[in-house]
Design a protein around this nucleic acid. Structure first.
Lengths: 244, 244
DNA sequence: GCAAAAGTGTTGTACGTACACCCATGG
DNA sequence: CCATGGGTGTACGTACAACACTTTTGC
């Protein structure tokens, strides 16, 4: 049995995307008073775990991510460490810990990880009935400092998405240009001219059109595309010069 | 007296700049065998300290930075957390810890902070005789995983410097455009056309020319400039639109 | 007067932006 | 046949890249 390190954890902010926008994977946390049955806590948290003794941060994050999604090989990136004194010491968290204290310190440092998944790969199932996608622009009440952690993750996502083609991690393997445009629009909070957007994507040799179209839509079916990381890695060298 | 947290530290990568390039502030670490007097360890480290109980990460970083530079109000930014199992467990570090163990864990998680200082503000003095500026492109032997930490800090600096006007933190209050150009060239590893560079800076309203010139140089004296964070904050809103 | 860096303008190219119409499909 | 989104090209302006000569100072 692995022993946990009582004062160090990782927290994974898992982002997903569907036609209704950008989502975060949250777990519903409930605490009933054993005597009265009263709901003392009913909020949501991102998924985190304490790091095990002898374990790396990255391994702990992968483990956490696997536990919640059942998936491996998923985009995962460390983005910030949180260590404020109050983060597990609000009245609510003291209450939570008084019922669930498993040798956990009262000053837990947590390293935040950002993960991007194709939301169609995650089906809500019986094992994870308390887990669900929540819209990032309309979050429910959150535990700990998870509101802050999600905000910071989002900030990082917005930055990163402009510098590297990581947006594709949020799309199904085959996608249409409209889906791609909607994704970028909702991450960046802008809107793009459709013709200019398509022109720009057309220049990206690593976004490759397929001989495949949408089926069963009540309009002209859109062409599908795939992203090729290979082509990206081979062609990205060109853009290594900068301005200030 | 403050008690340290045995398994959590912060490490500050302090960057400076002078005419010979970009520098890191390093401390010489020496360990002599008490019996034979033989030098067991003679390398360099960035400055870090364990976090105290009841202390925030940011506070710990500020404290560390003050201890090494004697300065406050300096640019400081968290950039990455390091937690590999081996980072304090090489033969060398085991040896170091066997002579200097002050209740320090054998798996220390360290949060890396990046700091930028005007190197003319730091004078090597008697109190910090073991501290010196070392060129980032020619580092001496480093302890712990500090080579990796510095590399990651540098990567972050290169990214950040293109997105925000933080380069000025590395320059004296009053600087010439040549100094500024050299700074950007050596951080980004490129070179710029002088006329185009000056044209571009000319557009930045927050880089303000002074009625003051260089003195005592054997050529046409250059005009001095200052950076105004105020003007920057007021005018930066304009550039909040993006492309992919 | 010479060495060393400061300072200055023009032109071509590439890229971003703005904008309107026909096409294919399901119902 | 109609509603819905798919798909396409041109004209303009902005921003970046390339390039050479004159000026001021200390020695």
């Amino acid at each position: 049995m692995n022993k946990i390190i009582p004062n160090i954890s990782v927290d994974c902010v898992v982002f997903g995307f569907d036609s209704s926008g950008l989502k975060v994977l949250l777990r519903n946390r409930k605490l009933e008073c054993p005597e009265t049955g009263q709901l003392l806590i009913n909020d949501h948290t991102i998924t985190g775990f304490h790091v095990y003794e002898g374990e790396d941060l990255d391994s702990a994050a992968q483990r956490t991510l696997f536990n919640i999604t059942g998936l491996t090989g998923i985009y995962l990136e460390q983005f910030y460490a949180f260590g404020s004194v109050e983060r597990v010491n609000s009245e609510k968290e003291k209450c939570w810990r008084s019922y669930n204290n498993l040798g956990i310190s009262d000053h837990v440092f947590s390293v935040g990880y950002l993960s991007l998944v194709d939301s169609t790969k995650i089906k809500p199932d019986q094992e994870h009935a308390d887990v669900s996608w929540m819209p990032v622009d309309n979050l429910p009440e959150l535990g700990f400092d998870h509101k802050e952690i999600i905000a910071k993750a989002l900030e990082r996502l917005r930055l990163k998405v402009r510098l590297e083609p990581i947006g594709f991690e949020l799309l199904p393997e085959k996608f249409t240009l409209r889906e791609m445009q909607e994704l970028y629009e909702c991450i960046l909070g802008t809107s793009f001219d459709r013709r200019n957007f398509r022109k720009k994507i057309g220049q990206m040799k690593y976004v490759i059109p397929l001989n495949e179209k949408q089926k069963g839509v009540a309009h002209k079916p859109a062409q599908k595309y795939i992203f090729s990381r290979d082509v990206y890695e081979r062609t990205k060298i060109e853009k290594l010069d900068f301005s200030i």
